[in-house]
Simulated scan of single mutants.
Amino acid sequence: MPLTPTADIMADAVASRTGQGAFNVIHLETVEGLITGAELAGLPLILQISQNCANYHGGLEPLALACMSLARQSKVPIALHLDHAEDTGLAIQAVDLGFGSVMYDGAHLPYEENLETTAKVTEYAHSMGVYVEAELGKVGGKGGAHAPGVRTDPEEAADFVRRTGVDALAVAVGSSHAMTERNAALDLSLIRRLRDSLNVPLVLHGSSGVPDETISEAITAGMSKINVSTHLNGFFTRAVRDYLESHPTVVDSRKYLGAGRDALVPEVSRLLRLFAGTARSNET
């Protein structure tokens, strides 16, 4: 089917009051495993390419075009999103390439500078019909808006959304990026207050470190988009490691990369069904 606009997928999640999975691409095998997992679940998926991933591949366009091609062959709706772009030029390039959404990450900047730069990216993206996500948290160290202890202020968030016109906001509520253990505790009360203060969907970054039950509680409290990367990377890497240990003489990289790709499928399906099966609450 055609590449699906992120706005459409997010609108469906908001209307159904459920969570929408957004999973990060690392390389082509990741894309294949993620899409196959979404097809197994029979649910839509947002594919994400980060600025770090684009840098690893020497540029955004080659991997983006591969994602678009595979998305068009998918049996379920697939959107393509640029994740954590601190470079405004990269965000503009993604819009021009046909991404359904971009996340401009100015959370490391002083508040007014973040606001001004985000507004400029949003204006250009909206002129091309592209959905925009931004990030806001009171920066508490090198880890940025998702460092331990950092939180987003609801009043500041409402001001930021109003003045930038963004379509979704990633908020700091207790998760951190690149966690390999699932033991993060989220501030569910803050999520509810942010939900009540904003008229745009909330995005949970750093979800790899959050237990299933807590993610479900966060969706019920008001989260709409759930980003996952490190958790799924672990499934891929463990499968590659196991294959190499069992086949020490293998030299064909397709063998072990294929094992990694296949290991993604059931967990992608499970996570998408978990998120979609959790309805957000109407309670205040």
Rank of each mutant, 00 (worst) to 15 (best):
G58C: 07
M223Y: 05
E29N: 14
L186I: 01
M10Q: 00
A259C: 07
Y111K: 02
L194M: 08
K120P: 05
L80H: 02
A79L: 05
A66I: 11
G165M: 13
V95A: 03
P2W: 00
Y256K: 02
L63K: 10
V250E: 15
R241C: 04
L188F: 08
S269A: 15
H247Y: 02
R193H: 07
L43C: 04
A185R: 14
N24P: 11
R273V: 12
S224P: 02
G42H: 03
K142Y: 04
I92C: 09
S101F: 01
L90V: 13
L272P: 09
G129A: 01
E267L: 07
E113Y: 10
L40R: 10
G206S: 03
T284I: 14
G137T: 04
A168S: 15
P2V: 00
A107S: 15
V121Q: 12
Q48D: 05
G140Q: 08
S253T: 12
C67T: 05
S207N: 03
K225C: 08
D8I: 01
R163F: 02
H57R: 08
G37K: 06
D262P: 07
D153G: 11
M179D: 12
I219R: 04
I49H: 02
G42L: 04
L82Q: 04
L194N: 06
N199F: 07
S74A: 15
A172M: 00
S216A: 11
A145W: 00
A259L: 01
G42Y: 10
V76W: 10
N52I: 12
R193N: 12
I49R: 06
T152H: 05
V102R: 08
E213F: 07
G129T: 00
T36P: 01
V161F: 12
A15I: 00
I26Y: 10
V166W: 06
P62A: 09
R241E: 03
A41D: 05
N233R: 14
G258I: 05
T122F: 10
V171P: 08
R182W: 03
G58Q: 12
L202G: 07
A184K: 01
K75S: 13
H231E: 09
L109E: 15
L271M: 08
P154D: 05
C53W: 03
R162H: 15
T117K: 12
Y256Q: 05
R195H: 10
Y131D: 01
G277H: 10
P5H: 00
A185V: 15
L45C: 02
T164K: 03
V251L: 04
P2L: 00
S189Q: 06
V76L: 10
I226F: 03
A11M: 02
A221W: 13
G33E: 06
